[in-house]
Design a protein around this nucleic acid. Structure first.
Lengths: 439, 439
DNA sequence: ATGTTGGCTAGAAGCCGACAA
DNA sequence: TTGTCGGCTTCTAGCCAACAT
């Protein structure tokens, strides 16, 4: 029987996984593990950075400490227009948790944005990966891993079925480049694909439990890679607490403020596994959505990741429009929509979303700048700013987004046709906004 | 044979070790694990906070990333006088790595410091703990843990030696309050104390390897506790990288600057395991040392932790005095002494130390304000500032330490007798200071 | 006094098909 | 098609004393 060593990997291969040094992770594997919803803007494109969203993520990655000293205050606009200078994909050395360092360079006013950098539609590749949620049997010490039939046939190297039983040794590299070896065998009645020897050390090394997922990815060069996705439940980070939470938060704001003022490059860390909203979004997405409209009562859909790790859409209704934090972040588009989800089991889903996260209910396109208003009380006057309540309330917002020239604020560049057809569409304030009754 | 269950612990006991919540750790155990050199100032005492040192520790806890964007700049003085409002002792939930959150409140100028708050000399307790570095046998799967004889007799509950063999079940709580059970037996020829059943799960749970240490601590109430000290070598943190390093560093500075300006409480995290210098030191220590003198050529001793986890002193000679970073932190006492160590195997030891870390060579007291100058070329004129080179260079330092009243700088309060006997002793600049040739 | 090793044993890890969902 | 289980085998974890340092 073929099967040279069939031992496990551990510290065998010559992978340059040095201590305390972060190596850039294979992009295809990173994105496969991150899931279909996570899409990073291309390098060198224009993006909008949302400090509020960054703070949300930091708070989520951090222990809710007993430590809430005074609130810092920085004169930051809600959003900063940047060029995405560079992206480094990374993974935590212990947990394989993914993240990305995004280098952002605030855009000078003189730098006019390219006309609506449209995203190149990525060609769909044929299926060359599979992701399976581990069962109790997969993770028990009693046996190995049951490979779904289609997955084995499409993603694993072909077996020599003349053997009895057919078996081979698989070698797959994880996100750090570490090699793992498995015995792949096709046996049993009825026949099935199994990974036996080597599987349990992988499970225990990665500390996988039932509910977690593994992902196999076959490259063009027949190189096999594999990744890990933890069950969303056990998202315990075991935060390392290098500095206090207060310092971390101040650091986020101060870094952005400093960078925006001096127009200097800065870096942010994005954790896709937090399942929170992305706080660096493509500029064209922002522009498109700013020029469109939304109103209370409007129906929409939004993409989510379902339990089987595929994409699905949930429907909801806009129930309010306004600032999340009117004091610290007035006139911000960040999570400006208050929504209600159709499904009653709508826990887990945010009750506030941002304009660019949603899609119109009739899935024509992603929020085209056509009239979408369906609420009769919010009749839209085309080509003119729709100021629902007092217009003076939203004047500062205008200034913030297209500032006259405040020295210490990041400036959004002027749109080419500020006075022509596509109007700046401000956020409509609903007549009644039950802010306190948020439950 | 007595031995009720002899099973391991894991998630058994009802310890309130909730997720993502940091519980304050038993102080005695924390300090025992931290080692004899780590001494935190008492709560409510005056302390001096050194942002430079804080940055050093942060850099040490953080991957040396490929990420060094532009340097931030804050107008911070090298030191900030604070009151130590509170201390919370903590431990990392996964690694048991110790740290302390220290809440600092910058002192207003109006708040005169109490006259030389002397530290109450802590009474030495009798030995009620032992710490053993694990051998290969201790950590192998082949057997248990060999308890040193004296340690067992002094720190473990007494065995009933009439039994054959004498044995009992030990229960010890770790730093998180989790209970671990061990079978303690006295057997073999010659007789010895061993921990058998339960030991290996502890080793694997804590991921201990040969070279790490365990520490047993017996309380007054016969309650047994145990802690873990990793070998200094494997100090890999697996940093969680919540935000970029740049943001972390900026956060440290911005937090301190903000707090100093507004006289608001802020928190810092201190990691004793970094083995770097403490960046929060008692004010009385600072005052004492500022009023003393030091000069190039002077001999001194300094406390270190030796391999067997006890305290020992190394001797060295001052070879230079001056700023570590003359550009960003001019006129700072932080690591202002450049030193050379006697032992040739002096790697690992810092080549720069601060005044308050060293002791005079003749161990009379801790740097009394007596004349200690031994270098004939640096003859000291008592009771007057010794300005070796151009005195104008050090004028700004004076202003920084005792500022006239800059609004955004933390101010050091005026010493009661600025013009009387005890002079402000400035750092002497050596004639030649080879800064580039640091190796 | 205590680290390491060989011997021995109990129990877990782990491979297999059967069977069911 | 694939999750779980009982049966069986192999191997390691783990207790012991002997021996060495």
């Amino acid at each position: 029987i073929l099967l040279p060593s069939s031992s496990s990997s551990s510290s065998s291969s010559s992978s340059p996984c040095a201590r305390k040094v972060f190596i850039s992770v294979d992009s295809e594997l990173w994105h496969a593990c991150a899931g279909p919803l996570v899409s990073l803007p291309p390098v060198n494109s224009l993006v909008v950075y949302w400090p509020q969203g960054h703070l949300e993520q930091v708070a989520n990655c951090t222990p809710q400490a007993v430590d809430q000293p005074p609130i810092p205050q920085y004169n930051l606009p809600p959003q900063i227009l940047c060029r995405l200078t560079d992206i480094t994909l990374m993974a935590h050395p212990d947990t394989d948790k993914l993240y990305a360092q995004m280098d952002l360079t605030p855009v000078r006013e003189s730098e006019k944005p390219l006309v609506s950098e449209e995203p190149p539609p990525a060609a769909k590749r044929k299926r060359n990966s599979f992701c399976k949620t581990l069962t109790a049997s997969d993770t028990s010490t009693h046996g190995g891993f049951s490979v779904p039939r289609r997955a084995a046939e499409e993603c694993l190297p072909e077996l020599d079925y003349t053997m009895n039983p057919p078996c081979q040794e698989l070698v797959a590299k994880d996100v750090h480049g570490v090699e793992w070896k498995f015995r792949h065998i096709y046996r049993g009645h009825p026949r099935r694909h199994l990974l036996t020897t080597g599987w349990s050390v992988f499970v225990s090394s990665k500390r996988l439990v039932a509910g977690d997922s593994v992902l196999f990815l076959r490259g063009e060069n027949e190189q096999l890679r594999l990744g890990v996705r933890r069950a969303p439940k056990q998202q315990q980070d075991a935060p390392s607490m290098v500095v206090s939470n207060q310092s971390t938060q101040i650091g986020v704001l101060a870094t952005a403020a400093h960078a925006a003022m001096e127009k200097l490059r800065f870096s942010v860390i994005y954790h896709p596994s937090t399942c929170l909203s992305e706080f660096v979004i493509p500029y064209h997405k922002y522009v498109k959505v700013i020029n469109s409209t939304a109103s209370v009562g409007m129906r929409f859909k939004m993409r989510f990741e379902s339990a089987d790790l595929t994409e699905r859409r949930y429907a909801g209704t806009i129930t309010g429009i306004g600032d999340v934090d009117p004091v610290r972040w007035p006139n911000s588009y960040w999570r400006s929509l208050k929504v209600e989800w159709d499904e009653s089991a709508a826990s887990e889903r945010q009750e506030r979303v941002s304009l660019w996260e949603i899609e119109p209910f009739n899935s024509a396109a992603i929020l085209p700048p056509l009239s979408l208003g369906q609420n009769p009380s919010q009749k839209r006057r085309p080509n003119k700013p729709t100021l629902v309540n007092s217009s003076s309330v939203w004047d500062p917002a205008m200034k913030l987004l297209w500032p006259s020239n405040p020295p210490h604020l990041a400036s959004m560049p002027e749109s080419e046709d500020l006075s022509s057809p596509a109007p700046i569409w401000p956020i409509a304030i609903p007549p009644v906004m039950p802010d306190g009754a948020a439950s």
